[in-house]
């Protein structure tokens, strides 16, 4: 099972699409590692510095409909190659969400007011998140504040995380 903990990158915008996460011109690459240097390269977000802001982050907290657009699994791979296995948002585009779990990664949905709380209490303060899959809760802390938030995860999604993804599961069962 992958690790779901570490420093948080806050992206305060809804509808961040997969072209922004990894532009199409890099889809000619066959190795996942080639995605690493280009994560969020075309993100349109005031104040975001692609050269500085990703380094050392392991979790993304963002807004509604993250990962909309293209079906490219290169988007989760670009995150994974940068050590980011967990994205937390009020909602995700269906294909992106499924791609995350299919790769044994986690696209975690929290209520909009819980996301608001994460932004208002923790953004900009070197926050860190630890997700506990068995307890279905995340623990977040910064120098100023801390909180524990419970979440719901379906048995299917949990199985994919715990077994490392959909290929092995499907090949064993069907």
């Amino acid at each position: 099972m992958k690790e779901f903990k570490g420093k948080v990158l806050f992206l305060d915008r809804s509808d961040i699409n997969t072209d922004e996460i990894i532009p199409a011109k890099y889809l000619t690459e066959i190795e996942k590692m080639a995605m690493k240097a280009h994560l969020l390269e075309d993100l349109k977000l005031d104040g975001f510095d692609v050269k500085k802001d990703i380094e050392g982050k392991a979790v993304i907290v963002t807004r509604e409909n993250f990962g909309c657009g293209s079906s490219r699994e290169h988007a989760p791979w670009a995150l994974e190659m940068n050590g980011i296995n967990l994205v937390i948002a009020p909602g995700f585009a269906r294909i992106f969400r499924q791609n995350m779990f299919n790769c044994g990664m986690m696209a975690l949905e929290l209520a909009p007011e819980q996301i608001d709380l994460l932004f208002s209490e923790f953004a900009g303060d070197q926050a860190e998140i630890i997700a506990d899959i068995d307890a279905s809760s995340i623990f977040i802390r910064s120098e100023k504040s801390k909180a524990t938030i419970e979440f719901q995860i379906s048995d299917f999604d949990k199985t994919l995380i715990q077994t490392g993804g959909w290929v092995e599961y499907a090949d064993n069962h069907y």
Binding site: G69, S70, S71, R72, E73, P76, I95, F96, Q98, N99, N102, C103, G165, W166, V167, A170, D171, Y174
Partner: peptide, 28 residues
């Protein structure tokens, strides 16, 4: 490919998927 939904024009359930779903589709 996300625009696989196009084929729904024929009354099919057609969905775009990522590479892992595609891989399982090919295999199983």
């Amino acid at each position: 490919d996300s625009h696989t939904c196009t084929h729904g024009a024929f009354g099919a359930f057609a969905a775009g998927v990522g590479t892992t779903d595609l891989e399982v589709g090919i295999l199983k």
